[in-house]
């Protein structure tokens, strides 16, 4: 497996495609691993010890409402893992519910983004987000 820059957790394949497209548009060279549900994420966390691929991991983009194990629980697992707890996590969801936003920030997400309906806005938002978390944040460390 190649080195990973971004982990994208998203169950909706259309949304995933939009996100991937936006990321590639932003930077062709960013390596993205796409996982479709919480269970796969837990496996990934479990097996990450032997994998050097995550050494380059810079950002996790996490959907809130994903099958099997929901986004908040997955978030918990990331934050409890010493290997992942310092990697910024961006919640990307369609929920504008206050309780979801509160729960996400309580569990330590770095950003909470609501998916825009319009394609151009979607792309723009992902770009702005990447600009900060991939370029600015990691370069300023």
């Amino acid at each position: 497996m190649e080195a990973i820059d971004i982990l994208l957790v998203e169950d909706n394949s259309s949304d995933a495609e939009l996100s991937l497209r936006a990321i590639k548009k932003y930077d062709q060279d960013l390596a993205v691993l796409h996982l479709e549900d919480g269970e796969k994420v837990l496996d990934f966390i479990k097996n990450s010890k032997e994998q050097s691929v995550i050494n380059s991991l810079k950002l996790i983009i996490l959907d809130l409402k994903i099958p099997k194990i929901n986004g908040i629980e997955v978030l918990n697992h990331f934050k409890e893992s010493s290997r992942f707890k310092n990697i910024p996590i961006v919640m990307l969801t369609s929920s504008m519910e206050e309780k979801d936003i509160e729960a996400a920030f309580n569990k330590g997400v770095s950003s909470y983004l609501v998916k825009p309906m319009i394609y151009e806005e979607y792309i723009k938002m992902i770009h702005e987000m990447l600009q900060y978390w991939i370029d600015y944040y990691h370069n300023s460390k």
Partner: peptide
């Protein structure tokens, strides 16, 4: 409303693509 937005986003997104 929430669930309606997702396919719509796809619809619009693919048209744009």
């Amino acid at each position: 409303s929430h669930d309606l937005r997702a396919p719509l986003r796809a619809l619009y997104g693919y048209a744009q693509i």
